[in-house]
């Protein structure tokens, strides 16, 4: 036996409170994310998106840089939800399913941890990794903003929009964790979240607004519009959306389109409801999940 034996203090160890264990677990999991290839890969993708945005703005300028609000409304409002979805897929897609598929869960579940502790700890770690990606994207846009608008590169709306984007990230991550808890195969979590948030909700929104012709308050893709509309003037802070109707003639056809835009408070409520339903649903699923 190498080394001297170290006896632990007399009496049994005091297992930390679940809250402390959540913090500890989140810290280790976050470090695991920071060292992972997927973190580097996603950072590369976000930088690539930033470079494309920079090139488009530099090439076209015009209306894109007419004002700082128009610039952030277009690129932060349009880009940050996409980055949030990517982050959720990359960091949450296999967060729970991977514990079964890769058998790392047997390592954690042999420890005196509640299942909820594992779930929440991993959620916080994935969220922090996602926040890092959102910050990276924000920094790239702000650097562009400083170049074009100098001292006006930091409108107050940007701060609120960033917070809204973080709420959206938590909602998408909640959904990702739900799917990840639903299946024991990582790929399902990845694919379902990506399909649903990149294509599915947008299609659903088109159906609800175009065919059913009602405000799509039940869809998170509707809520994320709040991230961009905060840059509009005047800002709709309310709990109900704005309806804009426009019409145009295409040949002999008279086409009327109705656009629904979520109020800021309405968007926040929808996102939080999604977060709570998905995260709690996922947690309940994980509580019943067996490592068989």
């Amino acid at each position: 036996m190498a080394g001297a034996t170290v006896d632990l203090p007399a009496g049994r160890l005091h297992v930390p409170q679940s809250g402390q264990q959540v913090t500890k677990l989140a810290r280790y999991q976050f470090r695991e994310y920071l060292r992972s290839r997927r973190f580097v890969a996603l950072a590369g993708i976000v930088v690539a998106i930033g470079v494309i945005v920079t090139a488009i703005v530099a090439h076209f300028r015009g209306g894109l840089v007419a004002s700082n609000l128009a610039f952030y409304g277009s690129f932060w409002g349009g880009g940050s939800p996409f980055v949030a979805v990517l982050a959720a897929v990359f960091f949450g897609g296999d967060a729970i399913a991977g514990e079964f598929q890769n058998k790392t869960g047997y390592f954690l579940m042999g420890l005196p941890l509640r299942r909820g502790t594992v779930y929440v700890g991993k959620f916080i770690a994935a969220y922090l990794a996602g926040v890092a990606m959102m910050l990276l994207f924000l920094v790239i846009l702000v650097l562009n903003g400083v170049y074009y608008f100098g001292g006006s590169a930091f409108p107050w709306q940007l701060g609120i929009s960033f917070v809204l984007a973080l709420v959206y990230l938590s909602a998408v991550l909640g959904a990702t964790f739900f799917f990840s808890s639903l299946f024991k195969t990582s790929a399902y979590g990845f694919v379902l979240t990506a399909l649903l948030f990149i294509i599915g909700f947008t299609l659903l929104q088109d159906v609800v607004t175009g065919l059913v012709k009602i405000e799509p308050w039940m869809l998170i893709s509707y809520a994320d519009s709040a991230i961009g509309t905060i840059f509009a003037s005047p800002v709709n802070w309310g709990l109900s959306g704005t309806i804009t109707t426009s019409s145009m003639m295409v040949g002999r056809m008279h086409i009327v389109t109705t656009t629904y835009t979520a109020g800021i408070a309405e968007g926040v409520v929808i996102m939080i409801v999604y977060l709570l339903l998905a995260a709690i649903g996922g947690l309940l699923l994980f509580e019943r999940e067996e490592f068989s």
Partner: peptide, 22 residues
């Protein structure tokens, strides 16, 4: 009470995998 039950137990089941970067 899995937390208290496993507090004084060492467990090795199914040859678990450890996070590879650790």
């Amino acid at each position: 009470d899995r937390k208290r039950a496993l507090g004084d137990a060492g467990v090795l089941i199914e040859s678990p995998e450890i996070y590879s970067s650790l």
